[in-house]
């Protein structure tokens, strides 16, 4: 197995790098999108609530692979084609953002209505209240479940393999089919995923204890 790694380390590291890159991009944008839709889901305005609801239900209830294929194979029929890495990362972002929206929404709703009323009565606008008082409290509550979403996100980035996204899983597939050393290859791939997810998992447990 060590030999397999030393002979193919560049490909493994290329995959590792693409997995990290895709995860970070998807994490940042799915967090922004998800928080945005969570705020819309709790908005007093019915129209915006409806828009957010439709978005969340669509991306939460369609398999990640289907969303990704849509961007890789369907969208290029009307728009310029994108590479697998881009399509996969967009799919991953949208899919994860729906789950993050639900997580943040429950956090927002667990902040009592008294906090918003206190803000409004004090002269703050709805958005000032959100930014300064409601969202900070909601995010603190949602840190542990958000951590789980981020771990899922890293694992789900393996969907890139299906669209030649150059990620860890993709490189693993290529190495396995070239060397026929299937089992050691996927053990190495698994170890690389653990290198990413285990520290995150422990950090989340630490945060959970600290905030409890």
């Amino acid at each position: 197995m060590w030999q397999l790694f030393t002979q193919n380390w560049q490909d493994f590291l290329t995959g590792f790098w693409h997995t990290i890159l895709s995860s970070i991009i998807a994490l940042v944008f799915s967090f922004i999108l998800g928080s945005g839709f969570a705020i819309l889901e709790t908005n007093p305005n019915k129209f915006w609530r409806g828009v957010a609801k439709v978005y969340v239900e669509i991306f939460r209830n369609i398999p990640l692979l289907v969303v990704t294929m849509f961007f890789y194979l369907v969208l290029p029929k009307v728009l310029p084609a994108m590479n697998g890495f881009t399509a996969g990362t967009i799919g991953l972002t949208l899919y994860t953002s729906a789950f993050i929206a639900e997580t943040v929404r429950s956090g927002l709703q667990s902040v009592g209505t008294g906090q918003m009323e206190g803000c409004l009565a004090n002269g703050l606008s709805y958005w000032q209240a959100m930014k300064n008082v409601i969202l900070p409290q909601a995010l603190k509550i949602t840190i542990p479940p958000l951590g789980n979403q981020f771990i899922n996100l890293i694992k789900n980035s393996s969907v890139l393999a299906f669209v030649a996204g150059m990620d860890l899983m993709y490189q693993g597939d290529v190495i396995a089919s070239n060397t026929f050393q299937t089992i050691p290859t996927y053990i190495i791939v698994g170890i690389f995923y653990l290198i990413l997810t285990l520290p995150l998992s422990y950090y989340m447990q630490y945060l959970e204890k600290k905030l409890a």
Partner: peptide, 11 residues
Amino acid sequence: MVFQHFNLYAN
């Protein structure tokens, strides 16, 4: 306005 349950900003 002053409320029954104060509604101070908890954060």
